[in-house]
Design a protein around this nucleic acid. Structure first.
Lengths: 148, 148
DNA sequence: TACATAGTTAACGTTAACGTTAATGTTAGA
DNA sequence: TCTAACATTAACGTTAACGTTAACTATGTA
């Protein structure tokens, strides 16, 4: 069990962000101490780490993440008991399917971007070579002018 | 050559966004007609498409994209003539190297996220199966109670 | 007991990335 | 010549995702 200051160190999120995520319902309200301080479980910290990563690295908005979280919770809570119809589950499956496709699409785009960056690097290296040669020529010029 | 309204259709960006990108220096100011209307070249439209994609798909901020654009322009303009030192070029190469690593990192994270989504889908499918069976049991129950 | 160091809520402030509106100019066609 | 459909700049408005500050409470230690 961790207090909010510990969690900031473990997740990289600020206190404000943690409270904000709770406020907008992105995460479930954690338990409290008798003195009303938030206490986060190991599980909750893990979840927060993933949320932070998905936001920073994958560039998801908090709104998008809310979708995932609610889906995740529905499945985790074995929502059959809660009474989800087969149609609703099919809907969830389709949603997940689309998200998987989206990720795959993004990965393809990422790789294309990477290729571009590599090409830029090649160009830079070429320029580098040329300036190197120019530098050597200057050195050589200097060396034949100023014969010690 | 395209007017701004054409470009919105080709890139998906709004007029406001196009002017804004110019305002903050993300793109170079395009030429103008005699009546002061912006005219974009094929090249500029291509660039804008890439910018839009990098923003939407890869989740880059306009600030981050400005870095890329200036790097890109430095290299395209064969900056050797402009007088870049070997050290500066090395710096650029390192920057590009880091960005390539970053992309690779993001791709790995994306794939991990995809795996999670697939697991969620599997769980959903399991639940689906169970509710299906429940539904069939109900049908069966009904059939032995109400014998037509 | 007092103080330092945690925590709390509430409310206003900030930044990015535009949206929206107003007031105005240009150009092609009836 | 006038109107419709474009374009322009300038300025204020909006939303997300927090930052910051204020005013207060709880807790462990000297």
């Amino acid at each position: 069990m961790y207090l909010i200051d510990d969690v900031t160190k473990m997740t990289g999120l600020t206190k404000r962000a943690l409270r904000y995520y709770e406020e907008i319902g992105l995460i479930l309200p954690p338990q409290r101490t008798k003195g009303n301080a938030r206490i986060y479980s190991e599980e909750e910290v893990k979840e927060l780490k993933k949320v932070a990563e998905a936001k920073e690295v994958l560039g998801f908005s908090l709104q998008e993440l809310q979708q995932f979280m609610s889906l995740k919770r529905m499945i985790e809570e074995r929502s059959e008991q809660q009474g989800l119809s087969a149609k609703e589950i099919t809907k969830i499956e389709n949603l997940l399917e689309n998200q998987i496709k989206m990720i795959e699409f993004k990965v393809v785009k990422m790789q294309a971007f990477k290729t571009e960056l590599k090409e830029m690097r090649e160009s830079a290296m070429e320029i580098h070579e040329k300036t190197k040669i120019k530098g050597e020529m200057k050195e050589w010029k200097d060396s034949i002018q100023i014969t010690d």
